[in-house]
Design a protein around this nucleic acid. Structure first.
Lengths: 155, 155
DNA sequence: TGGGATATCATGGGAAATCATGGGAGTCAA
DNA sequence: TTGACTCCCATGATTTCCCATGATATCCCA
């Protein structure tokens, strides 16, 4: 499975274009839609990013309504309504829409922050601040990551 | 699978025509019927829209039916009775019928709102209000979206 | 292991295509 | 004939494609 790792800071040019980090593009290379999907975070001043496959999984989840509460349905509806398909050009650049930029306070540079199966897009300074904060909290509380046992591949 | 994502606001011209967003057309491009299917929402002052394939799934009961609770049969019957096939012209525009416009309170502009496998058509102001409401509710209850585990591709 | 050659990547800008939109003219049915 | 509906052409703005460049990273061979 493709993972989004590391943090990359790229510029935005006069046309509003910014390069998607090459490793992120590689993680999405196998998908039908050649680009990223982005929607405004509900909880942070940042933009959530993922591949189309992730949206399809969201959609699959939303179809089986028994598993979904009314609130969850609302939430996924908001995500679909807010999400943009941002195809990249032959050089691997995307154009972030105006309201997306505004939501994250982005002007001339963006930080692509790997989150595993998804990533986030931040105004670089804003992310540095948030990261420091998270790091401080982690130091204090010592959280643990549950690891599910590796399923042995046959062979 | 093609998804309807994002929200687009387009005008209605003097002839009653409005452009279907290009990405929505792309999502329906593979289908036999080149256009959209629209029916009046039972629950909101808006119009439900989808492709012909979704209607076929409703008819099969294959997948769409769990989207409707107990009185599925009645509901889907109503849907079929109310649904219109709206083919788009060479420029990708459709003409929304009079009663559809009235139901949603649409006059001179419409908002196409992506909902994943379907979309909705709203009077733009009305949608903004509803969206704000949903967003507030979602923020308050902080629901989480269950993601079903990715099915590993063979290999 | 070192250094040059090559490939990759982020970035920049001009040209061409796409999209939403508007309106005239032809077509079909009542 | 009249009205509604299509098709066709036109347009401005935006977006996308294509070519170019410097810097960095990687590869290859001695």
């Amino acid at each position: 499975m493709a993972l989004f790792l590391s943090t990359f800071v790229n510029r935005i040019d006069k046309k509003g274009r910014t390069s998607v980090p090459a490793t992120f593009r590689a993680a999405l290379a196998a998908q039908a839609f050649q680009g990223v999907v982005a929607y405004r975070s509900f909880t942070n001043a940042c933009v959530e990013g993922c591949g189309m496959d992730f949206m399809e999984r969201l959609s699959d989840g939303a179809q089986g309504l028994d598993a979904f509460s009314a609130e969850q349905e609302d939430l996924s509806a908001l995500i679909f309504a807010d999400a943009r398909q941002l195809p990249w050009d032959p050089e691997g650049r995307i154009s972030l829409p105006e309201d997306i930029l505004a939501h994250a306070g982005i002007t001339d540079a963006v930080a692509f922050v790997g989150k595993g199966q998804t990533f986030q897009i931040w105004q670089p300074e804003a992310y540095r601040a948030v990261e420091a904060e998270i790091r401080a909290r982690a130091l204090a509380s010592r959280p643990t990551l549950p690891l599910r046992p590796k399923i042995p591949a046959g062979g």
